[in-house]
């Protein structure tokens, strides 16, 4: 097998366009999915049984089925209810829904990891459940959940490849097109694999840096001197 390097130069722009679409879709899905994940996590501890049931059913359903069938369900169900969206939007909605279920579980774990006395002492001052969450519990949750949130974000990048099956013009779709035109599957797929790999590694490195900063700020000992360590890190 010989490698045809001309594919990289001839089809590079096309692949980069797909790459850009992947990034846009994942960012949009995170912007929609993270707040919704928070809503789901809070819904799971609502005092109304109905809301608790609704939130946990949503989470369990999306965590226990393949993403590809979720994508197809959205693809066919949305028009069924009269919602005709371009494939990219369907993809964003599906990815956001899928991601929110996982984000919700991560956030729930973080809330559970904050000592019970924190919520209690906040409620004892007269804060409502939501105020206690907003001002006392959730700010402490953030450094705890950051590593797991990073992992979920990376997994969204990977899952977004599945949107190619409903013709979303993202990175994997670009590779499929290139291999269809050139009949050089190895070059096409290895190139996108490397692009995904690079994107994931870059994100992982950035997030690890953020994690270190956040955990430094929230761990007592070095709290007194955050400015110095921040400069060194940056």
């Amino acid at each position: 097998m010989s490698i045809d390097l001309s594919i990289f130069t001839n089809y590079g722009p096309q692949l980069l366009l797909g790459f850009w679409m992947t990034i846009k879709i994942v960012v949009a899905a995170i912007i929609l999915g993270m707040p919704f994940g928070l809503v789901l996590a809070l819904g799971r501890r609502s005092r109304f049984v109905f809301i608790r049931l609704l939130a946990s059913s949503f989470i369990e359903i999306f965590r226990n089925t393949p993403f590809i069938i979720q994508v197809f369900m959205f693809f066919y169900v949305l028009p069924f209810y009269g919602l005709y969206l371009p494939a990219e939007y369907v993809g964003v909605v599906a990815l956001a829904a899928f991601g929110s279920a996982y984000f919700a579980e991560v956030i729930r774990g973080g809330i559970d990891a904050v000592a019970k006395g924190q919520l209690e002492s906040a409620r004892a001052t007269g804060m409502s459940d939501w105020q206690a969450m907003r001002y006392i519990v959730l700010p402490q949750t953030l450094p705890i959940i950051l590593p797991a949130m990073t992992n979920q974000t990376l997994s969204l990048v990977k899952e977004s490849a599945i949107l190619s099956t409903i013709t979303v013009g993202e990175l994997t779709m670009a590779a499929i097109t290139v291999q269809g035109e050139t009949f050089r599957p190895f070059e096409a797929f290895i190139m996108v694999a490397l692009l995904y790999w690079a994107l994931n590694e870059t994100l992982a490195i950035i997030m690890r840096r953020v994690e270190r900063k956040v955990s430094k700020r929230s761990s007592g000992g070095s709290r007194a001197v955050p400015a110095v360590s921040a400069v060194k890190d940056g």
Partner: peptide, 15 residues
Amino acid sequence: RGTPLLVQIFLVFYV
């Protein structure tokens, strides 16, 4: 861990 399973499947299947 850094690449989509779908792409891995295509690599194996087509290559």
